[in-house]
Lab assay of single mutants.
Amino acid sequence: ETEYTFDDKREADRAAKEAQNNGLRVHVTKDGNRWKVRID
Rank of each mutant, 00 (worst) to 15 (best):
E1S: 14
E1L: 14
E1M: 14
E1A: 14
E1I: 15
T2K: 12
T2C: 15
T2D: 08
T2F: 13
T2M: 13
T2Q: 12
E3C: 15
E3P: 04
E3I: 14
Y4A: 05
Y4W: 14
Y4T: 06
Y4H: 06
Y4P: 03
Y4I: 09
T5I: 14
T5Q: 06
T5V: 13
T5Y: 15
T5M: 13
F6G: 01
F6S: 02
F6Q: 01
F6R: 00
D7T: 12
D8L: 08
D8I: 05
D8P: 01
D8T: 15
D8F: 07
D8M: 05
K9I: 09
K9V: 08
R10W: 14
R10N: 12
R10C: 15
E11V: 06
E11R: 05
A12K: 01
A12W: 01
A12L: 02
A12H: 00
D13A: 08
D13E: 12
D13S: 06
D13G: 04
R14Y: 08
R14G: 05
R14A: 12
R14K: 12
R14W: 08
A15F: 15
A15E: 03
A15V: 15
A15D: 01
A15R: 08
A16P: 01
A16E: 04
A16F: 05
A16T: 04
K17P: 01
K17Y: 10
K17I: 11
E18I: 13
E18C: 15
E18Q: 11
A19T: 02
A19P: 02
A19D: 01
A19Y: 12
A19C: 09
A19F: 15
Q20R: 15
Q20V: 11
Q20G: 06
Q20N: 06
N21M: 14
N21P: 01
N21V: 09
N21H: 10
N22Y: 04
N22S: 10
N22A: 14
N22P: 02
N22M: 14
N22W: 05
N22E: 08
G23F: 03
G23V: 02
G23A: 03
G23Q: 03
G23I: 02
G23Y: 03
L24H: 12
L24A: 07
L24E: 03
L24N: 06
R25K: 10
R25S: 09
R25Q: 09
R25N: 08
R25I: 11
V26I: 04
V26H: 02
V26T: 06
V26D: 00
H27D: 06
V28F: 03
V28N: 01
V28Y: 02
V28Q: 03
V28D: 00
V28S: 01
V28M: 07
T29C: 14
T29D: 05
T29R: 09
T29Y: 15
T29H: 08
T29Q: 09
K30G: 04
K30A: 09
K30V: 07
K30M: 09
K30Y: 13
K30T: 07
K30P: 07
D31F: 08
D31G: 02
D31R: 05
D31S: 08
D31C: 14
D31E: 13
D31V: 13
G32P: 00
G32T: 01
G32R: 02
G32Q: 03
G32A: 03
G32I: 00
G32H: 03
G32Y: 01
N33E: 10
N33G: 09
N33D: 13
N33Q: 07
N33T: 06
N33V: 04
R34S: 07
R34H: 09
R34D: 03
R34P: 00
R34N: 06
R34G: 06
R34Q: 11
R34M: 07
W35L: 00
W35R: 00
W35N: 00
W35F: 04
K36F: 07
K36V: 15
K36D: 00
K36E: 02
K36M: 07
K36L: 12
V37H: 00
V37A: 00
V37M: 04
V37D: 01
R38S: 09
R38E: 05
R38H: 10
R38Q: 07
R38G: 03
I39T: 05
I39N: 01
I39Y: 04
I39D: 02
D40W: 15
D40K: 10
